[in-house]
Computed example of a mutant assay.
Amino acid sequence: MQVLEPRTALLSNFEVSTLLSELQKEHNDAASPQHSSDNLRFIQTQTLNYLNDTHLPTTRQSELGISNLLAQLQPFPTLTRAEKLMIVNLAPKTIVELYVIVEELEDRLSQEDIDAIISIVHTTLNDPAADAPVLNGTSQNDADQPLFEDDDEEDAKYEMQVAEQEELENADVGEEEGRAIDEVDE
């Protein structure tokens, strides 16, 4: 994995773990010592140790499994890019865990959608047999592409909808407060 343009896409824990593993391998394989800070090496090592701990789903994930998950989450347009990233990183197994990840879950998704997402996560990220063929024509030739493309338009659209909803709610509250004040003045 190679970082072509820094800060152009979000990285999942799996991608960070892979990148740090490759950097560590390159550092260990280098014939001459590289001029890297001891603090930087310490941070890289500790981060890698954390990401490879068995309590995180990162150890059970694969690039193919993540690609399959993202392809299968396409029918859920209300999920933002950040929420999809958190689903990959946390691999929720229960509805309660999904509530923590997806804002206003009940308002945005039906019970069938919620159950489908939990099932998709289970079959693509938690199952060792997740290395099934990739859906929607995504191939392994895209290995150097970030798994999370920049969907600013999608996120902006969702944020506009949330802002409009809040504006409507605030307008309703304002009218009620105005009526209450008028009644007190009389």
Results as ranks from 00 to 15, higher is better:
Q2S: 05
V3W: 09
L4I: 12
R7F: 13
A9S: 15
A9T: 06
N13I: 01
N13M: 06
L19T: 05
E26H: 07
H27M: 10
S37P: 01
R41T: 09
Q44G: 12
T45K: 14
T45E: 11
Q46K: 15
Q46S: 13
L48S: 09
Y50V: 14
H55R: 11
H55D: 07
L56V: 00
P57C: 01
T59H: 01
S62E: 03
L70A: 02
Q74V: 15
L85V: 08
L85E: 07
L85N: 10
M86A: 15
M86G: 00
I87M: 10
V88G: 03
L90F: 10
L90G: 00
P92F: 04
E97V: 01
E104Q: 15
S110F: 03
D115S: 12
A116E: 11
I117G: 02
S119L: 11
S119Y: 06
S119Q: 10
L125F: 02
P128D: 03
D142R: 11
D142S: 11
L147P: 00
L147Y: 03
F148V: 05
E149Q: 15
D152T: 14
Y158P: 00
E159L: 15
E159C: 06
E167Y: 10
N170E: 15
N170K: 15
D172N: 13
E176S: 07
E176Q: 15
D182N: 03
D182T: 03
V184Q: 09
